[in-house]
């Protein structure tokens, strides 16, 4: 690795990290596992003057169940690795979409080092975890000099590597509501198993009376400049019986209003096609989960 020169900090506490960030905000990058940022540094595509490594901060690495009145939820520290999510028995039993998604991120090395918070804050438009987070209706906790705030997943991703976090904020926790009725699946199309998604679809649904779909949330990644919730599609499927005909009729809405990207791995047309095919397959998989 031959990056341009930068100054490296490894703060021991969150306040210390926030102080560094407020000093260097515009010239700083936060390192949270490094599985994306280090590649950019290597190629000199990122040129931060200061690197603030969150790896030395304790207490940002946890997966736990919380209760808020009647409701149950999962809270995960931002520095929780993909491997920890994949291996969590709590998640496997109560929120299997997260381990299922984490298990197809990159390869073993990436999963051992890369973190959930890192993935979300980096906001790669083809990242896997954002699709799951969107479909689960997660909330993300941003901590800054003025305190903390919660951002809904669907408001978090703004564009290419751009999020609702301000340059002075650090993502510290991801909170996911639990539901006993929820069925889910994540499937991605990728040229190789370890690749970013050409198209990735995460589906959460709850069945209602008579085999209809009472609630459905669809997170989509790889298709445009940011991961997104396919809301118009969801509206078309909600309350319906999810048979092949219904899904295929609604499927074009999965990319409705979206500027689909084309590159050497898949043209915009082919991506749209894959999104429709994988939408059906993912709903099928979720229904049978």
């Amino acid at each position: 690795m031959i990056p341009p020169q930068f100054e490296y900090f490894r703060p021991a506490s969150l306040p210390e990290a926030l102080a560094l960030l407020s000093t260097y905000a515009d010239d700083a990058k936060v390192l949270a596992g490094g599985q994306s940022l280090i590649s950019l540094l290597k190629l000199r595509l990122a040129n931060p003057k200061y690197l603030i490594d969150l790896g030395g901060i304790g207490g940002l690495n946890y997966i736990r169940k919380e209760t808020d009145g009647q409701a149950e939820r999962i809270a995960m520290g931002a520095m929780t690795t993909y491997a920890e999510i994949k291996g969590s028995s709590l998640l496997q039993s109560r929120c299997p979409l997260l381990p299922q998604t984490a298990s197809v991120v990159g390869d073993v090395q990436v999963r051992n080092l890369g973190t959930l918070g890192g993935s979300l804050a980096h906001a790669d438009p083809a990242g896997d975890m954002p699709a799951a987070i969107l479909a689960l209706g997660a909330e993300l906790k941003a901590v800054g000099p003025k305190g903390e705030r919660w951002i809904k997943a669907e408001d978090f991703f703004l564009g290419f590597y751009a999020t609702a976090l301000s340059p002075h904020e650090i993502l510290t926790e991801i909170r996911v509501p639990l539901s006993a009725k929820r069925k889910s699946a994540y499937i991605k199309a990728a040229r190789r198993p370890s690749d970013f998604a050409l198209v990735g679809i995460a589906v959460c649904l709850e069945a209602g009376q008579g085999g209809t779909c009472e609630r459905i949330a669809v997170g989509v990644t790889g298709v445009t400049d940011k991961p997104y919730r396919a809301k118009s599609l969801e509206a078309k499927l909600k309350g319906k019986k999810l048979d092949r005909e219904t899904i295929e009729a609604a499927a074009p809405a999965v990319t409705e209003g979206v500027d689909v990207i084309g590159n050497i791995h898949a043209s915009a047309d082919f991506r749209s096609h894959l999104a429709r095919v994988y939408l059906y397959r993912t709903i099928q998989a979720a229904s049978q989960s």
């Binding site: 190789r192 198993p193 690749d195 050497i264």
Partner: peptide, 23 residues
């Protein structure tokens, strides 16, 4: 992969895809 101006578009192993054991 080259574009029409002769720029090589596959200059990392993300884009120049070697086979991996899986698959």
């Amino acid at each position: 992969v080259y574009d029409e101006d002769g720029q090589l578009l596959t200059t990392t192993f993300m884009d120049y895809m070697k086979p991996v054991a899986a698959g």
